[in-house]
Design a protein around this nucleic acid. Structure first.
Lengths: 230, 230
DNA sequence: TAGGCATCTATTGAATACAGTATTCTTATA
DNA sequence: TATAAGAATACTGTATTCAATAGATGCCTA
């Protein structure tokens, strides 16, 4: 029988990186909040070295912005940033969806279908975290089916720039239903191997996402404004 | 009068990063060659720490690929990789050129013009290094005029993946002349504020570039093949 | 009381030390 | 002679230590 390849433990740097990345995407840190190596190292119970390296990577990816005299802070997105980001996403993601439709293969399609079913179940169970995970799974399978790793990597990077997607942002039933409907249209396009259909559906999905994020951002800035006077 | 921003001394990490990046782009290391922290640290006369961090960044950018048990090697591009890379560049760069045409402003256009004139002079002087620099300058000005920093950053990243662009690759007079002609067409499109013209010219430029690189890659692999038998 | 100077602290940048692991070379035995 | 075991080597991952610098605080003087 084939024995399972034993997986070596992830390096600390990798763990710290993942942890911080998800924390940032979950909105655990406030915009403009300064992150100190020591603080994080202490909090995670590791030395500064792996933290240093993780921070460097995150900064390179744009999830943290470097401060003038060393150190990093959480960048605060403005509407302009969101426009830039989505301009890029409009360019990349529909194209990738089209590629996926052209290259569609059974396993990938099945995986996407399963992801959508999972999302529906999560909607019923009100399991927000699992929903977001399933949604991410859908995207991963779609973009991996596109067959261009560098394209997928570019998408994943730019997607990471929108880090105030707390799970709550998409928490309402209506938004999620629309989201699922869009994904089903994408899947349908992929099934039919229609690049144009898949791309069109992806554009619709992006529009929904952008509007939701815009609203969340404005809400957020409105909330944060009073603090700014201090 | 505006005083000059005083520049603090570059950190060692930054210096090592720059040094390695230019070395990689200049083709100083061979594909599949393993880069050891200690080796580089000794060669540059610094400790492993800044080297580690620089290597990590380069790896994240795709200029180095991580090895299974730690360490990095110079990735060897295959034709497939080149196709992936140019698929992405075809998507991003013509679009960016179009944006630049739409947003065109005097200073940027002038800068692009100067860059082209510099290239012509370098062609006469046979100054390869300066030619490549001027060419890079042209691109930077163009993409910065597009007004979307994240788009420009994505382009710069994917461009970095083609690191075997030694200066020699574009060394022949004919290729460079064609290159300059394409750039002039792009500039013309930008001047006329015609997004479509600029994008079209950029596509032509990319086609030239890709073909040149493909030829160089095949040449390179043919050269390298005999070694592989040892 | 206000401004300048010195000191103290917090934090990063860099170097070194230590541990674990993979690879390679050597040696012994079948 | 070939193969396998064991030792030596090389390298990475992580921690710790040292150095430098910026910012803050408090004191002293005009």
């Amino acid at each position: 029988m084939p024995i399972e390849a034993l997986q070596r433990p992830l390096s600390l740097r990798q763990q710290v990186y993942e942890r911080l990345r998800t924390a940032l995407r979950a909105g655990e840190y406030r915009p403009n909040q300064r992150l100190t190596e020591i603080g994080i190292a202490d909090a995670l119970g590791v030395s500064r070295t792996p933290v240093r390296e993780a921070l460097g990577l995150l900064s390179r990816e744009g999830l943290l912005s470097p401060m003038p005299h060393g150190g990093f802070k959480v960048p605060d997105l403005q509407v302009d940033d969101l426009n830039d980001i989505f301009e890029l996403r409009y360019l990349l993601e529909p194209y990738a969806a089209g590629l996926a439709a052209r290259n569609a293969y059974h396993e990938g399609v099945t995986g996407m279908h399963v992801a959508i079913q999972t999302e529906k179940q999560c909607l019923i169970d009100s399991d927000n975290i699992a929903f977001v995970q399933a949604s991410q799974d859908f995207r991963n399978r779609l973009f991996s089916m596109a067959g261009n790793r560098r394209l997928a990597s570019a998408i994943s990077q730019i997607e990471g720039h929108v880090q105030f997607i707390r799970t709550e942002t998409f928490d309402d039933w209506k938004t999620r239903t629309v989201l699922i409907a869009s994904q089903e249209r994408i899947l349908e396009g992929v099934r039919l191997r229609s690049a144009e259909e898949a791309a069109k559906a992806m554009r619709a999905l992006l529009t929904t996402t952008k509007n939701t994020l815009l609203a969340a951002l404005q809400q957020y800035n409105a909330d944060a404004a009073p603090e700014a006077h201090f």
